[in-house]
Amino acid sequence: MAKVLVVTSGKGGVGKTTSTAALGAALAQMGEKVVVIDFDVGLRNLDLVMGAERRVVFDLINVVQGVAKLSQALIRDKRLENLWLLPASQTRDKDALTDEGVGRIIAELRAKFDWILCDSPAGIERGAMLAMRYADEAVIVTNPEVSSVRDSDRIIGMLDSKTVKAERGERVEKHILITRYDSARASRGEMLSIDDILEILATPLLGIIPESQDVLRASNVGSPVTLNNAASAPARAYTDAVRRLMGEIVNMTVPVERKRLMNRLLGRRAA
């Protein structure tokens, strides 16, 4: 049965789009049929992070308004044949998204895919509300930083009250994904620890993505980090997170950079 998963955070710039691309690609790498939807109308970026920016013809709003069929708007990934992208509109007014229209598209996608990943825009306005509206599960992307944790708490409140599941008296299954984590700084007491964040948000942990140059390197070349360098620390962390999403029990560790000494000796590679 298809699962609708929203990647959300409230706060901007914490890594929603990067995480959507990485989780989507990792799921597809494991053989799942996946579509990632960009809900950030007017500021689309998932296409760019996934390296599909020059292949966008139709978008989510074209489909909502009946200008294009879903099959015309879906873009198939060039590297993974079971990964698809539904881009956001770059030009339209965000009010063009309607609850009814989004519901119709999600229902149609449920019949075709195993996973539907909704990349939420920042904020708590219409786009963010609609991205989470039909979710079965939610990944709340959180940085170890006070404003991000506060906004995550607010988003958790919304997931528990404004989603279709919540209105039916059911629960959206929520997971915290901590990104940009620096274990050295956390151990020196300079950064909120994982335990601090989980205790404050009272929500289970899906994964810990370490701060890494590989994330920027991957987005520079338009490739999800799990595809660009599967052996990198963030890629391994995203892959572990996806295995947990699929019900596996995976030990929670913070993957660290390998070959750090070698890098230092040889000088840093350019991103």
Binding site: V146, R150, R188, G189, M191, L192, D196
Partner: peptide, 26 residues
């Protein structure tokens, strides 16, 4: 280490501020 660097850990402050704020907001 903290003594040598002359810095104090700021994470406990962050944690306490968040706990108070979120209790109120919730």
């Amino acid at each position: 280490l903290r003594l040598i660097s002359g810095r104090t850990a700021s994470a406990p402050v962050a944690r306490e501020r968040l706990q108070i704020l979120l209790a109120h907001e919730r």
